[in-house]
Structures are given as C-alpha cells and as structure tokens.
C-alpha cells in the first residue's frame, strides 16, 4: 500500500495523508474522550489539589503553593513508602512475568488436552475475593499457620511471617504473584495469538526443539507487545493497593507501606487531626513523576546503548 502511494504524484499523496490523519483522529475520539473526562480531569484536579492546604471534607481550602511538596521532600515516611513500592515491584515483576508467560505458552502451544481447565484454574485467584484471601493467608502464614507447622516438622523455629517487619514484604509479594499471575497469563495468551500456527509447524519441520521454537521464533514476534505487558506489570506493581490494604494495612510499622497506602491513609483516615487531601495529592503526583522520570532515563540509556552497539 505504501509502495503504491509512492508512485503517485506528491499532491495526491499529501491529500491521502491528510485524509488518513483525519480518519485516525476520528478513530481516536472515543478513547481520548474517555481518557480526558475520567482520567485526565482527575489527574489535573489532583495536581490542583496538591497546591492546597485542604482536608477534602470542607468546601473551602487555602492555597499553599509548593508547601506540600516542600514538606513531602522532608517526609521520611513518604520515601519509605516509595522505597517499599519499588522493593515490591523489583521482587514481584520477574516472577509475575516469567510464570505467567510460561503458563500461557504451556497452555497455548504445548498442552492441548485440558488446557482450558488449567487456564481456568490458574485464573481463579483473580476472581477470589480479596478480603477472604486476607483471612486464608492468615491461616497459612500466621504465627500458628500451616507454613510454621511445616517448619516445625523439620525442627525449625516458627517465624512470624506477617507480623515481622523483615518477612511481611516477602509474604505480600508471594500472595501478590499468586493473585495476579492469572491476569498476565491472559495478556500473554492474547499476545501469543499474533504468532501464526504455520510458524510452529515450520519450526517443527526445520527440526527446532521446543525451547528453540520459543526463544528463536515466538519470543521475537511477541517482544513488542511483551514490552508493553512488562511496562504495565511494572507500573501496576508500583501502584499495588488492595492487597496490601487488606493483608497488612501497610504495617507492621510501615514495613509494607507502599505509595498507594500512604496516599490513601493521608487522604482519608487519621486518629488525631484532620485528613490531608492536598498533601496526599502532592504525594500521588510526585510518585507518578518519579516513575515517569525513571522511564525517561531508562529509555535514554537504552537509546544510547543501542546506538553504541550499532556504531
């Protein structure tokens, strides 16, 4: 199609391009509208709120300029929360991505019989109610839970998994991986659908084994969308909320406090004193900015490295 277009005169080409541009934007309208109204506007509001000294409860607020940000940069609990978010992400993401990809590939390309059943089974944690998950994890990881009973059988000392600052994060990560693998498995399954069945057959004829087929043929094809899935996995792990809120509430003593729980707690609940929606907004906006900045830095480094390689 593009080859055809280059053969015609430049005026016609420009006209065609303009037409395509218009069509493209017409196609973008619904998505952009839904974005602007229900994500763009709330984000702009948050940026606006972050300049206010406001509890969120009253209809009057005081403009505070950059005071919230100034205070935020001296708040060690904010940086603790940011640190924990990254800790969670760094441990969680490799497991999430590899396990979910392995499962998706297994049930898409290797196993045919019973694949539907297995897919359903590995998807069930996604639809298991979080508050019930919290309770059952207490039975498993609690001080008197099954894991400790098992350790006891081997003569090891019981560990207070959720109750100690050192281990709570590990438990939360394990449960997080368990609960989310199903979601990413679905995404990978979708990505694998752009690999044509013919390619598997061709690979088999060429005598490639399973691993070679996967690494040499399938992986390169799903790489572009794989990158998006990975970025999404990173971002949603950084924003983890529900699970931590239910399981540890950020405790014990901020050991599992992540950015989202920090923001939520600051915005809504407090024992003494009024909640601080303005301050919470500034924390949310700053956290977003940190991730974006890291993304840009990462991209730049990647760009420089790939340039060097080609030189």
């Amino acid at each position: 199609m593009k080859a055809k277009a280059s053969g015609t005169t430049s005026v016609l080409k420009r006209q065609r391009l303009r037409k395509i541009n218009i069509w493209c934007w017409v196609f973008m309208i619904p998505a952009v509208l839904l974005y602007v109204l229900f994500l763009g506007y709330p984000i702009l509001s948050s940026v606006f709120y972050s300049t206010l000294d406001w509890s969120g409860m009253t209809s009057n607020a005081v403009f505070a300029g950059l005071d919230n940000f100034r205070e935020l940069f001296g708040d060690k609990y904010f940086f603790n929360a940011v640190g924990n978010s990254f800790k969670y992400m760094v441990i969680c993401v490799p497991f999430l991505l590899t396990i979910s990809l392995a499962l998706a590939y297994l049930f898409n390309s290797i196993i045919k019989k019973g694949a539907a059943v297995f897919r359903t089974v590995f998807f069930m944690p996604v639809v298991t109610t979080t508050s019930i998950v919290g309770i059952i994890m207490m039975f498993i990881f609690g001080g008197t839970g099954s894991v400790n009973q098992m350790l006891g059988l081997f003569g090891m000392k019981p560990v207070n998994w959720l109750g100690s600052g050192d281990y709570a994060m590990i438990v939360v990560v394990i449960v997080g991986v368990w609960k989310d693998v199903g979601t990413y498995m679905i995404y990978w399954l979708a990505a694998l659908q752009s690999v044509s069945q013919d390619l598997y057959e061709a690979a088999m004829i060429d005598g490639a084994n399973r691993w070679q087929t996967f690494s040499k043929i399938v992986l390169p094809i799903i790489m572009p969308i794989g990158g998006t899935i990975a970025i999404l996995c990173i971002i949603s792990s950084l924003k983890v909320f529900d699970l931590i809120q239910t399981m540890t509430n950020g405790g014990p003593f901020f050991a599992t406090d992540v950015a989202a729980t920090f923001v939520y707690r600051t915005a809504y609940s407090s024992a003494t004193g009024t909640p601080r929606l303005g301050y919470a907004s500034s924390a949310a906006v700053t956290f977003g900015a940190i991730i974006v900045a890291m993304g840009i830095i990462g991209n730049t480094i990647k760009g420089i490295l790939s340039k060097r390689r080609t030189v």
């Binding site: 984000i43 948050s46 969120g56 999404l232 924003k239 989202a260 907004s281 949310a284 956290f287 993304g295």
Partner: peptide, 20 residues
C-alpha cells in the same frame, strides 16, 4: 500522555469524577 497518566496512584478520583 496515556502512559504517563497511569503512573499516578490515584486512590481518590472519586471526588473529581463525582463533581464532573
């Protein structure tokens, strides 16, 4: 813009969305 937007942990979008 789309990518950058999803990085912000918005746990209180309720207020602006409701206003809207």
């Amino acid at each position: 813009i789309f990518m950058a937007s999803i990085t912000i942990p918005l746990v209180f979008t309720v207020i602006p969305v409701y206003e809207l």
